[in-house]
Design a binder for these strands. Structure first.
Length: 301
RNA sequence: GGCCAGGUAGCCAAGCAGUAAGGCGACAGUCUGCAAAACUGUUACGCAUGGGUGCAACUCCCAUCCUGGCCU
């Protein structure tokens, strides 16, 4: 009981290209921490340049968890992320260090910083295949009969979510559980890096050129050669989606670049929508402001 | 200078007499095992400008301006 009060957790959020990784390393160095990545693409082995995975050199000796922990051929999910992250956090604490979660995947962060309770129904590919044969109107009706609240929450057209809800309802014979998440029993410091959109789009453009120089296209080619389908690559989105389309000659190089640029900006916007909802986030304009936030948070009982 | 085509939202674009499709982008948002994914909402009291004909014009007529093409 006493111990849980003293538990600390720092979370760093922000839109893509805002400089989160670098800030995480700096805080980790200064406050004896280790980084837990929260990025749904950087978990995959072989997806380095396109996902902006931090390099060994950039890690500057700070230990990073949850990078390269999954095979891109197989599906990964929040549920697995949640488990692995919790294990990593405990490990870090046992070593007497401060865990610093850093990443752009809001859903993943929420799963550990708010202990989202994920229904224990594992995905059933066969059931999903069957359900996919129905159009969204039909799926909606099917769900509405068994769980009206969920149907209304999800809406008429989001087939992916309708299918997951149906999966839960059909397996448990009950509606999707009501309570979604509970806050952790100790305070968490969440720092948000804010960058204005003009600057962000310049950073994204610059970063894309750098990635191309570093061999982003070759990386995607290699992933394809290792057995990933085009469809799978396209589903990863952004650099992987448009590089895959380019390699298939469905779009030109310049179309690829402008698509990645625009889609990244939209992605950043969606991330901000997600993070804005969390009113506990302490937004900062410059990374240097993080030091005193962290210092006073770590000092508090 | 002459002839032809065209000027509709930030961009592309349909409508061509009955009261402004669609796409892109932008903005706002949703989120309980694919989350860089999937999904939702909003975005032209006005159709280059000025006249005219009509019950009614972005739609027809005239003039002007602008853009593109062809000719001299």
């Amino acid at each position: 009981m006493k111990q849980s009060v003293l538990k600390k957790l720092i979370v760093i959020v922000g839109p893509t290209a805002s400089g989160k990784s670098d800030l995480a390393v700096r805080l980790a160095q200064k406050f004896n921490g280790e980084v837990v990545s929260a990025d749904s693409r950087q978990v995959y082995r072989g997806m380095d340049i396109g996902s902006g995975k931090i390099t060994r050199l950039e890690q500057r000796g700070v230990k990073h968890h949850l990078l390269d922990v999954a095979d891109p051929k197989r599906s990964f999910s929040v549920a697995r992320y949640q488990k692995m992250a919790q294990i990593a956090i405990n490990q870090i604490r046992q070593n007497g260090k401060i865990p610093i979660i850093c990443g752009g995947t809001g859903f993943y962060i929420k799963s550990v910083a708010e202990m989202t309770s994920i229904p224990t129904v594992p995905p059933d590919p066969i059931l999903r295949k069957k359900l996919e044969k129905n159009n969204s109107a039909r799926l909606y009706k099917m769900l509405e009969i068994k769980d009206k609240d969920s149907a209304q929450r999800i809406g008429h057209y989001n087939t992916r979510r309708l299918i997951r809800a149906l999966e839960i309802v059909l397996k448990t014979k009950k509606p999707v559980p009501k309570t979604a998440s509970v806050p952790l029993p100790y305070p968490v410091l969440t720092i948000g890096l804010s960058v204005d959109r003009e600057k962000l789009s310049r950073l994204i453009a610059k970063r894309l050129n750098k990635r191309l120089r570093r061999g982003m296209i070759a990386e995607v080619k290699k992933l394809r050669a290792s057995g990933l389908s085009w469809k799978r690559l396209e589903n990863f989105g952004l650099e992987y989606r448009y590089a895959a389309l380019f390699l298939q000659k469905k779009i030109t190089l310049s179309e690829m670049k402008s698509k990645i640029q625009i889609e990244s900006q939209r992605y950043a916007k969606r991330q901000l929508t997600w993070f804005r909802k969390d009113h506990s986030v302490k937004w900062i304009k410059h990374p240097s402001e993080a030091n005193k936030l962290a210092a006073s948070y770590l000092r508090a009982k």
